[in-house]
């Protein structure tokens, strides 16, 4: 386990001057505002703006990232993959398009890395025509470079895209071959080692559905996970869709990776447990940098506002 670090300073692999300076400026500014608030002085809105600007641009420029602690809803997914016996079969569904990719692609990447590091086997599938290209790209970018010993057909296989939306799920939940007689390269499923003993989706050990539209994670839960004998399903969704998925947790889904925050939590959990990924790009954590700092700034301002308000003798603010 990497010991806990609140802020990882790894832009230049070590002590990083610009990060320290920018954080000192922001922190010092906050301190100054705290003292002002304790004197019951109000802050001009432009000062709020400056802090927001700094809080968003500093992490962007200097790659400041914050260590995330996985919340139970994300940890559920991580621990399932971690604790399954080796060589378990995991289905990864790519149900998204390039527009949604910035938010959900990091989740797919993190889960793929984790599963392969754990020596599980992966089955890729897409219900979106636009998903297949993203899937091919992901496979060709991650596997040969990071897991050169993994072989197509033995350790992973891509089934490609199939039209028919949730109808496809309805079929593969009882028979995969009927919908996908071959994999994406035209090899019959009967010749693919992963599918030995896999007749339907009920025979895989887990489904990780990544997406945000329809058909997508919700359909995987309803048509595959909820089918009698269906596999456990975990989902990764865009932030706007996450509230619609919450009602399924924890009864029907193992866990939910919601938006970039969910991706960041998973990445950080991965980094904690697998030092080998320390050099990997972690877009989730990277994109959470500005978010976290901005949220902290906003929360700090809410506290300042209340301090000023109470110390200032609860003066009437409203006109009229």
């Amino acid at each position: 386990m990497i010991p806990f670090e609140p802020i990882r300073l790894f832009a230049f692999g070590g002590f990083n001057v610009p990060i320290v300076i920018s954080l000192l400026i922001i922190g010092g500014g906050m301190l100054w505002l705290l003292i002002r608030s304790l004197k019951a002085k109000e802050v001009d809105r432009r000062i709020v703006f400056v802090f927001i600007f700094a809080a968003v641009s500093a992490p962007l420029l200097f790659e400041i990232t914050f260590d995330e602690t996985a919340t139970p809803i994300v940890k559920g997914v991580f621990e399932k993959i971690e604790n399954m016996p080796e060589r378990s079969r995991i289905v990864i569904a790519f149900d998204f398009d390039p527009a949604m990719a910035p938010e959900v692609q990091p989740m797919a990447n993190a889960v793929i890395r984790h599963a392969l590091a754990k020596n599980h086997r992966l089955i890729f599938i897409s219900l979106w025509a636009t998903g297949q290209a993203l899937m091919d790209k992901t496979i060709s970018e991650i596997i040969p470079a990071e897991f050169p010993q993994k072989q197509d057909g033995i350790d992973y296989v891509s089934l490609g895209y199939k039209a028919g939306n949730e109808g496809v799920l309805n079929v593969i939940v009882s028979n995969v071959k009927k919908m996908f007689p071959t994999d994406v390269n035209g090899v019959p499923l009967t010749d693919i080692a992963i599918f030995n003993g896999v007749r339907s989706m009920k025979d895989v050990d887990m489904v990780m559905a990544v997406g945000g539209g329809k058909p997508g994670p919700k359909e995987w839960v309803l048509f595959v996970g909820d089918a009698p004998g269906g596999p456990p399903v975990a989902v990764g969704v865009a932030a706007v869709v996450a509230p619609q998925m919450y009602p399924y947790y924890p009864k029907q889904v193992l866990g939910i990776l919601g938006g970039i925050k969910g991706a960041a939590e998973y990445e950080s959990e991965l980094l904690h447990n697998y030092p080998r990924f320390a050099e990997q790009d972690t877009p989730g954590l990277r994109m959470m940098g500005p978010q976290t700092l901005a949220h902290v700034v906003i929360m700090a301002f809410i506290i300042f506002g209340n301090l000023a308000f109470f110390i200032g003798g609860r003066h009437k603010e409203k006109r009229l």
Binding site: R45, V48, Q291, H295, I298, M299, F304, N306, E317
Partner: peptide, 28 residues
Amino acid sequence: SYRAFRAKNREATILLVAAFIILLGRTP
């Protein structure tokens, strides 16, 4: 948020607390 989330009365306090919990939940 700076201006409006102040515990001026019971309603405003509830608004503030709900917002703060959600905000906090979105940070590590």
